[in-house]
Amino acid sequence: MKKILLCCNAGMSTSLLVQKMQKDAAARGLEVTIEARPLNEAMDHLDDASIVLLGPQIGYAKGDFEKACAGKNIPVDVIPMADYGRMNAAKIIDGALAKIG
């Protein structure tokens, strides 16, 4: 089972996105778990993640996450602002799964 870890500032808007992504994944029968963590907790939850997606508002932290994930073969990406703003769950999931391989 693949796990998508979303990371944001405080978790409010991202929790709505996670709910939408979970519904979309379930409707498509995808074997994926999706979870959101605030920035100050996310580093403690990298070990079981298949990919880390950062909210656009914390894109500045991408380098830190890439360093933390370097030896773990976990890709890190920033969710595009347009997809985040529109809560385009399907596109975000598809992009994440494409990077996981």
Score class of each variant (00 low, 15 high):
residue 76 V to K: 05
residue 30 L to N: 06
residue 92 I to K: 12
residue 55 G to T: 09
residue 62 K to C: 09
residue 37 R to I: 00
residue 98 A to F: 12
residue 78 V to T: 15
residue 86 R to H: 08
residue 50 S to I: 09
residue 70 A to P: 10
residue 19 Q to D: 15
residue 55 G to C: 08
residue 45 H to W: 14
residue 51 I to E: 08
residue 69 C to P: 08
residue 55 G to S: 12
residue 18 V to C: 08
residue 40 N to E: 13
residue 73 N to D: 08
residue 68 A to M: 01
residue 70 A to E: 13
residue 48 D to N: 14
residue 17 L to C: 08
residue 85 G to Q: 10
residue 24 D to E: 15
residue 21 M to R: 05
residue 57 Q to N: 14
residue 59 G to Q: 09
residue 45 H to F: 15
residue 78 V to R: 05
residue 50 S to N: 12
residue 18 V to E: 13
residue 50 S to G: 15
residue 27 A to L: 07
residue 34 I to Y: 09
residue 5 L to G: 06
residue 5 L to A: 10
residue 27 A to H: 07
residue 10 A to F: 05
residue 57 Q to S: 07
residue 97 L to T: 06
residue 14 T to P: 15
residue 77 D to H: 13
residue 53 L to S: 01
residue 101 G to R: 09
residue 75 P to N: 05
residue 20 K to M: 10
residue 87 M to W: 01
residue 56 P to L: 02
residue 35 E to R: 07
residue 41 E to Y: 06
residue 69 C to K: 09
residue 17 L to H: 04
residue 99 K to V: 08
residue 89 A to H: 01
residue 72 K to T: 03
residue 81 M to Q: 12
residue 71 G to F: 06
residue 20 K to C: 01
residue 73 N to C: 01
residue 93 I to V: 04
residue 26 A to Q: 14
residue 63 G to D: 11
residue 89 A to Y: 08
residue 20 K to H: 07
residue 93 I to P: 11
residue 84 Y to L: 11
residue 100 I to M: 14
residue 5 L to R: 05
residue 78 V to H: 08
residue 36 A to E: 14
residue 68 A to H: 04
residue 80 P to V: 09
residue 48 D to R: 11
residue 12 M to V: 14
residue 26 A to T: 11
residue 53 L to W: 04
residue 24 D to I: 00
residue 63 G to Y: 06
residue 59 G to Y: 01
residue 81 M to C: 03
residue 31 E to I: 00
residue 70 A to F: 14
residue 49 A to L: 07
residue 50 S to H: 08
residue 80 P to F: 06
residue 66 E to N: 14
residue 97 L to D: 06
residue 71 G to T: 03
residue 101 G to P: 00
residue 60 Y to S: 07
residue 42 A to T: 04
residue 11 G to A: 05
residue 26 A to S: 08
residue 86 R to L: 14
residue 7 C to P: 03
residue 12 M to Y: 13
residue 15 S to M: 02
residue 72 K to D: 02
residue 29 G to H: 05
residue 99 K to Q: 13
residue 29 G to F: 03
residue 38 P to Q: 10
residue 71 G to C: 04
residue 28 R to D: 09
residue 45 H to Y: 15
residue 72 K to E: 02
residue 78 V to E: 14
residue 14 T to E: 11
residue 22 Q to I: 07
residue 95 G to C: 03
residue 9 N to H: 05
residue 79 I to N: 08
residue 14 T to C: 12
